[in-house]
């Protein structure tokens, strides 16, 4: 089984004077070439979600560890390899209002990447390719060509963002909070679009969010981060329906389900003001079940075939090497 993308013991540490902040702590992860998937990276602000996206896109380099794309370290790619990497690993960002140049028509915006990567030979071919991408995201090409971004709604713009990525036929799409600024009624359309991409075009999607509701519906697997460390990971249904790590339990308990029979949980909210992080479990200061042993760093324990948690509550279970995290993530 060929590996498309691999994080190998990646850490990112930001230094400011003498203080060091570990934004991402020893993460290993693989995406396979022949099986596309949707992986959710969930966590609150400051959990390292965006750092992960930036690393994956090659915008920043890891402090420790390597990131491989098709077996090659992405910080050491040659010119042409880098072009391929840029073409095949695409991104959709949070704010559909801020990413477009307001002076250009949609046509122009979609044309730029096609020309840049020399993907089409003639004008008709360019047009066909744009039309195909727009149709794939559920837009009518005739209605969209020639329009300016300000003439489109937020949902339409976000879908054009996805179409822009799609004209390049990417292998990996990093979607950083793609629906958080879109109206609830349009969210469904965008999520459906993302899933169609994965199913019909074989694009693997790394879906970064703090919204577990949408993650539950769209993803195959989930990885819950807290202050740069993996707290729990596994199949999305398993993790969200039966969360085991105290942090995941707190998260899932706080989801405002639009369902009157499922009220907000009664778990007491521990104050989060404490910013001191020791060497041990990063959730220690907030954890309702904190023990003495938690002052040391907990390894990952395998709870189910597709569920692993980094918590000493499960110390009876077999350990899972950090490098083998992906084994607990179904595709």
């Amino acid at each position: 089984m060929a590996t498309l993308l691999e994080f190998k013991n990646v850490s990112k540490i930001y230094k400011r004077g003498k203080t060091e902040t570990t934004a991402l702590d020893n993460l290993s992860l693989t995406l396979k070439d022949d099986e596309s998937t949707i992986l959710t990276v969930a966590g609150e602000s400051g959990s390292g979600k965006t750092t992960l996206a930036m690393l994956l896109l090659g915008f920043i380099e890891p402090t420790i560890g390597q990131i491989y794309y098709k077996g090659k370290d992405i910080s050491l790619l040659s010119g042409s390899e880098r072009m391929t990497f840029r073409k095949e690993v695409q991104a959709v960002f949070q704010d559909p209002f801020a990413v477009f140049n307001p002076f250009y028509t949609v046509e122009h915006l979609l044309e730029v990447p096609i020309k840049r990567f020399k993907l089409a030979k003639s004008r008709t071919e360019i047009r066909d390719r744009m039309a195909e991408a727009l149709t794939a995201v559920g837009l009518q090409p005739d209605e969209i060509f020639g329009r300016f971004p300000h003439q489109l709604s937020g949902g339409q713009r976000q879908r054009i963002n996805i179409a822009r990525a799609l004209v390049l036929r990417p292998k990996v799409l990093v979607a950083d909070e793609p629906v958080s600024m879109v109206d609830a009624s349009l969210r469904a359309n965008i999520l459906e679009t993302l899933r169609t991409l994965q199913r019909n075009y074989g694009v693997s999607i790394v879906y970064i969010t703090h919204d577990l509701t949408t993650a539950f519906h769209i993803a195959n697997s989930i990885m819950v981060l807290y202050r740069g460390s993996v707290m729990e990971a596994g199949g999305v249904e398993q993790v969200i329906k039966y969360p085991q790590h105290p942090y995941t339990q707190l998260l899932v308990d706080s989801i405002p389900w639009p369902d009157l029979s499922r009220r907000w949980g009664q778990t007491d909210l521990e104050p989060s003001e404490d910013t001191v992080i020791g060497k041990g479990c990063k959730f220690y200061s907030r954890c309702p079940k904190a023990m003495e042993v938690c002052k040391t760093k907990p390894p990952l324990y395998q709870l189910e075939p597709y569920q692993t948690a980094s918590c000493f509550l499960f110390k009876e279970k077999p350990q899972l090497e950090a490098e083998s995290l992906s084994k607990a993530l179904p595709v």
Partner: peptide, 17 residues
């Protein structure tokens, strides 16, 4: 609007407006 809401029992069903 109510139909478009994500539910916990059925996974992966989206109904936009």
């Amino acid at each position: 609007l109510i139909r478009s809401l994500p539910k916990l029992d059925v996974r992966g069903v989206f109904q936009g407006i």
